[in-house]
Design a protein around this nucleic acid. Structure first.
Lengths: 204, 204
DNA sequence: TTTATTATAATTGTATACATAATCAAAGAA
DNA sequence: TTCTTTGATTATGTATACAATTATAATAAA
C-alpha cells in the first residue's frame, strides 16, 4: 500500500517551484511568506521550508525569485560538464545493451515526440548518463542543478535548437562504439552548445 | 559597523554540528527536536531549520546522526577528487607568486604548527585550490562536503598520517613548476591516500 | 528640491499551541 | 510463547501568536 499523501510542505514546494517555472512568479520578484501562505491556503511554516529548499536550488535568493546572470549559468554548466564528462566514461564502460537501447529510445522520442515528451526525454537522457556513476553524492548534486537547468531546457527547446537531437544520437553512437574519448568530447560540445544557445536567446 | 549578532538558528546550527563533531551526539543516535530545543534553550523552530541544513550536509539523515558507510565516504571523495583535479589545473594556470607563497606558508604550518593550526591550514590548503576555479557553484558544493570531510580530517591528523604534509609540499612544487599533469596526479594520489587511511582507522 | 528624521506598517524570526501520525508497551487471543 | 490489538506516550507537522527587525512613507530641515 503506497503512501500517496503529500505533506503541505511538499505540495507547497512544488507549487511555488512551478509558479517560478511558468512565470507566474517572475525573475527578481519579491517573495513574501505571508502572501504566499494566504495564496496557497497554508500557514507560513510549510512555506518557509519550501523557500529554504528553493534557495538551496538557487531558484530563490535574498527573498526574491532568482535572476541568474550569464556568469551563474556558466558556473552551473562548468560544474555540469565536469560531472557529465566523468559520468559518460562510466557509461561507456558499463552500459549494457539494454541501457543503450533505452538511450536510443529516448533519442527517438526527441525526433517524434511532442514538446513535453521531448523535454522529459531530454532530461532522462542526461539523468541516465549521470546515473552511470552510481555515486549518490554526484547524482544528488546533479539533481540540485536541475531546477535552474529546467529553465534553460525550456528555452532551448522552445526555439528548437538545431542539431540537439542529432547530438544526442551521436553521443549514443559513441557509447555503442565504446569510444570514451569521443563520447567525452561530444557531450562537452553538446552541453556547451546548449549553454551558448540559451544564453543567446535569454539575452535577446 | 559589523553585525555580529547571530540568529538563534545560526547559533543552534553550529552547536548541533559541533556536538556531532566532538561526539556528544554519536553516530546513529536519534535526534529529537524537543529534546534539543530544551537542551539548547530555544524553541523547536530554529532547531528544525538547523536540522534541515545538517541533513543537507549529510550529517543528519532520517532523524539520526549520520553513520556514513565506506561507500558514502568513497562517493564523497570521488566527487571531491573530480573537483580538486579540475581546480588544480586552474591553480597551475592562474596562481600568482603571492598565491604560491601563501600555499607554502600553509605547508609550513603543517610542519611546525599545533594540531589545531594544522587542521585549519590543511582545510585552507584545499579551499585555496578550489577557489582557483572562481566558480561559486563548485565552491559551494565543495563547502557542503566539508562537514563530512571534517570528521575524516580529524581522524587522519589524529593518527598523524605519514607523508601528508610532504604531499602538500609536492603539490605546491608542481604548481610552482606550472606542471598541470603532475599536479593533477599528485592531488589525486593525496586524496586517495587520505581516504584509504581514514577508512582503515575508522573501521578498526 | 534634496536630504534627514521619525512614525507607521510590513515582514521576518522565534515561540507556543494544537492536530496528526508514529512509536512503544501492556493486555489479551491464538 | 508468539502474535495482535489497543491504549498511552511521544514526536513531528502545521497553525497561530508575539517580538524584533526592516522597509515604507510622510514630514521637517537644509
Amino acid at each position: 500500500m503506497e503512501n500517496n499523501k503529500m505533506s503541505a510542505f511538499e505540495v507547497t514546494y512544488e507549487k511555488i517551484r512551478d509558479m517560478i517555472f511558468n512565470g507566474e512568479l517572475s525573475n527578481g520578484q519579491k517573495i513574501t511568506e505571508t502572501k504566499l501562505a494566504e495564496q496557497l491556503g497554508v500557514s507560513r511554516t510549510p512555506i518557509r521550508e519550501a523557500i529554504k529548499r528553493l534557495e538551496q536550488e538557487k531558484l530563490i535568493a535574498e527573498n526574491r525569485v532568482a535572476n541568474p546572470t550569464d556568469r551563474d549559468y556558466q558556473n552551473i554548466f562548468e560544474m555540469r560538464i565536469l560531472i557529465e564528462k566523468y559520468a559518460i566514461v562510466k557509461a561507456v564502460q558499463f552500459f549494457t545493451d539494454s541501457d543503450v537501447e533505452e538511450m536510443e529510445r529516448l533519442v527517438e522520442i526527441g525526433y517524434s515526440g511532442t514538446k513535453e515528451e521531448t523535454m522529459e526525454a531530454n532530461k532522462a537522457f542526461h539523468e541516465r548518463i549521470v546515473a552511470a556513476t552510481k555515486n549518490d553524492v554526484m547524482i544528488d548534486y546533479f539533481n540540485q542543478m536541475q531546477s535552474i537547468i529546467y529553465l534553460f531546457r525550456k528555452t532551448v527547446l522552445h526555439y528548437k535548437r538545431p542539431g540537439l537531437i542529432d547530438e544526442h544520437k551521436a553521443i549514443v553512437d559513441a557509447i555503442k562504439d565504446r569510444d570514451a574519448s569521443r563520447a567525452e568530447r561530444l557531450i562537452e560540445e553538446h552541453l556547451q552548445a546548449d549553454l551558448d544557445f540559451a544564453l543567446y536567446y535569454l539575452r535577446k
